[in-house]
């Protein structure tokens, strides 16, 4: 199985070689997507963990046993109207019409509630007006 999670650390926990352990002892593929770790304060790590279901579960248990707070990752897509030049390309790539081109005004708009965060639109925007953000709450 494969899952994206956010791990929240306290200052002391950031000393632990957790990535090494996850790979070595739990046989997981660990892909770090984003990190903010600093020995002086709390931090977080956004990781993709991939491996056998049992190993995955015990890997997450191991993290929790260290007192690390593990949560499923929530992502959000943000469209910046100020950066967008209304080229009209992105709606062709959006499967849900979250990004939509009004054929009268030829203006693109974005409806977050329709977005399924498939990521299809991210690469097609020449002004990088569409971005994917990881939602990470303030460190615990």
């Amino acid at each position: 199985m494969k899952n994206r999670v956010v791990c929240y650390f306290s200052a002391a926990q950031s000393e632990q070689p957790i990535i090494y352990q996850l790979i070595k002892d739990y046989d997981l593929v660990v892909n770090i997507l984003k990190a903010d770790i600093n020995p002086q304060k709390e931090g977080y790590l956004v990781v993709e963990l991939e491996g056998k279901r049992e190993k995955y579960k015990s890997g997450v248990e191991y993290l929790k046993s260290l007192g690390i707070h593990v949560e499923p990752l929530s992502e959000t897509v943000v469209w910046s109207e100020e950066i967008c030049i209304q080229c009209g390309a992105c709606p062709s790539f959006c499967p849900t019409q979250a990004l939509d081109l009004d054929r009268e005004t030829m203006m693109v708009s974005f409806d977050n509630s329709k977005c399924v965060i498939c990521g299809m639109c991210l690469d097609c925007c020449p002004t990088r007006a569409i971005k994917l953000y990881f939602e990470v709450r303030e460190a615990v």
Binding site: G88, S92, M106
Partner: peptide, 9 residues
Amino acid sequence: STPQSSIYR
């Protein structure tokens, strides 16, 4: 069809 040139602009 995918536009590259902005009609709105």
